[in-house]
Design a binder for these strands. Sequence first.
RNA 1: GGUCGAUUAGCUCAGUUGGUUUAGAGCGUUGCAUUGACAUUGCAGAGGUCACAGGUUCGAGCCCUGUAUCGACCA
Length: 899
Amino acid sequence: MSVTKTYSAKDVESKWYAHWLEKNYFHSEPDDREAYTIVIPPPNVTGVLHMGHMLNNTIQDILIRKARLDGKNACWVPGTDHASIATEAKVVKKLREQGIKKSDLTREEFMKHAFAWKEEYGGIILKQLQELGASCDWERTRFTMEPSLYDAVIKVFVNLHKKGQLYRGLRMTNWDPAAQTVLSNEEVIHTEENKNLYHVRYKVVGTDDEYITVATSRPETIPADTALAVHPDDPRYAKYHGRKVIVPIANREVPIITDDYVALDFGTGALKITPAHDMNDNALGEKYGLEVIDLLNADGTLNENAIEFVGMDRDDARVEFVKLLKKTGDLLETKQYRTSVGRSERTNAVVEPRLTMQWFLKMDDMAATALRAVESGDVKFHPESMVNMYRSWLKPENARDWPISRQLWWGQRIPAWYYNDNVFVAETAEEALLQAQRKLPLENLTLADLKQDEDVLDTWFSSWLWPISVFDGFKDTKELEYYYPTNDLVTGWDIMFFWVARMVMAGYEFAPELLGEDFVKKNGKMPFKNVYFTGMVRDEKRQKMSKSKGNSPNALELLKTYGADGVRFGMLSSAAAGNDIVFDAPMVDGKVLDQSELCNQGKKFCNKIFNANRLIQSFEVTDSLPNPTAMLAAKWLEAKLNHTIVEVDRMLAEYRVNEAMMTLYKFIWGDFCSWYLEAIKPGEGEAISQQTYEATISAFERMMTLLHPFMPFITEEVWHDLRDRKEGEDCVVSSWPKAATYNADIVKSFTLLQDTVSSIRDIRNQRKVGKREPLALYVNQSASSEQLLGANAGAVEFLRKAGALKSVELTTEAPANALPFLIGNDKAYLVLNEIIDVEAENAKINEEISRLEGQLKGVTKKLANERFVANAPDAVVALEKKKMADWTAKVESLRAMLG
RNA sequence: GGUCGAUUAGCUCAGUUGGUUUAGAGCGUUGCAUUGACAUUGCAGAGGUCACAGGUUCGAGCCCUGUAUCGACCA
């Protein structure tokens, strides 16, 4: 028996993790077993472990450990993505601190710095996952910028270009002036912010003092105005239709156009139209053939088209323009209003709508395919309701082409070479040159004449290939054939479109080419069969936990404070699939306190298991026959355990992971510790029979295996304590227990005994009779009571022990000074060593009778209803009849108790 | 503004195609207990007119309609 009374997670966890690694249990190689595969959602290489990762990876670990225990060839592939914008920003910042400007470096020099940065910081998050217990196959760790995965991206780009699915175009894009790159819609975060709405007057051409006043939040773009728009039905402006206005400052004439896009009730009902700097204005510009004047540089400063304040940042320029407009008298009013402002997810800079030349991937066909994959059930979502969100992303009217180029260096450089307006897409420069030489009527064309695209590809353009590329599937399909399609994907719904949908697209696009039609016909094209969506982790105020808000506890501190098992339990106990979890992590000045109720529950559970083990280890064992109570308890435990296995299997099959865990929690704590161990616990100086001991160990070790996926460390520790284990015998690679058929009657009758004990304890509580005072119990003699107390050898002894009784006897008449209660439908009497207030007791019984009669009335009414009897299924009617019989018997028993 | 979702005990949530009692769990809370596995404990209790109003049905927490509140996503 362990000397300490409390479980210490720290030593246990590091000991077993090292052991598992040493035994290489997490490594997978293709063999003839069934594969079970998960690819990790690759965290940003810049990332550190946060609550979202912990939740997500705990669930993956549960699934993979369960599969391993099921005897499958479990393979969990870890890795990171290169996170182009975030990483490049970090590298640039670090270089700046060293006095190096990115603009002073060549592309190659910069990449060297970036890879050096990755080598130094890139593995942090993976190390942290080990602290959590994640059983990833670390030998398979991949990185989206490593050569093989880089090549995959290039191959895919060339492939899609050949198929005509890629094109290059000038488009209104979301421009991040800080990172100086285009962003996809999904990388722009819209939030409500306070802004000013300026009312500026535009003089109508051909009048002396007639003006139209527009409302704008961006006066600095006035020099880029190329029209003024009003609603066609707006009577205020009807007389100006077809005329022109003079743009202030620029003193240019522009047309007044009418379109019902203009909101009558917003601002003044008149809009200035700047096609180069607003998405909607751009659409109007195309519709009406307006001129496009671009006045912004890539870094957000004004170019020479701005006339005034050239070179000034757009925000400063706005202030200056307002001053200028005030001076000219054209600014009439300034109003505050709240509006949605788009900021870059990565740099937080206000995003500029900007016309840029970008590569796009056509989405219409792919989106339709990806939608069908989920709607047909080839890819299943858990919870199912997430399909709605998926559909709203992918339905034809919402599917937009994917801008895949990014104006950065850290990423896969676009394999396109240009010669004037000619584009040559190829895997290598040499191939591009060959293409050029064939196509262009030029002699002596060399590599030096071709210019490679300066841009790199969106990070998601690497990670959408992840389920294929981690197995080097674009190079050699040997592993892909074994592991593809992967089984489960666990991720947050916030990247359902970014990542999940696009992986589905990539799977359907490339699996048939890579693996062949026969293969996909048999196994499917999908990259994974199931997607488990986790919720967001929020704090007590329901705010999403994030580093920037400072409401997210330091993950490593959390693990240290409660142990990995404790944190895993705490997080999971409130995490139903897809539901956000409200996590309590009390902190002071960012330091984790040990007051998380959720995690403490997990920590206490570890301690409970630890002490159950201590108790069992302390038993003295003899060869004698087990006593009847222990035999009864063991039979019941075995039945209840098998019942629990059935339940847990069912819940896991339905991805109700937290319910499976809570079922085990209740079983281990309530049934095993509180009832079973108390029932078999020998008295002082007594021993336990070998047979009971063996039954106990056998059940307990199965419990440890069942709980292992959820709480891997303590279960491994205890599992080893229970028996002498040979080299290579470990809980992590033991076998998931199979539910045996069990006797449901034993569970039923034992439950009745438990209810009896609870009734006795309740009466003691109410009467303030301590359990040191042994009481006598009489049970009315009947077929059912004889069955319960006679046939189940050990039942009487069990009641005596658990209820602290001095005797249990069957009787035909009510003893004096006894408090009556029901065991099932049988009358029972607990004799107290005091005078009973008969009237008060009768009142209580009458209360119970009237409660039952109320229920009976409902049932009687139901059964009297011909339409119920005619329409309801037979089983339901039979049930109602049984209820009536049961309650009638109960009422009769209670009536007989009235003294 | 558009779309989707939610509303069940103090808190966090189950409630699986409408039928198992007058709705469950965990935590918390209240009372009692306790020198031997565990106070990181044990036992027991209290606590809900399932947001509201209609409707469908023999039967509604569950289906339909409307209202309110909240949330998310998109614009």
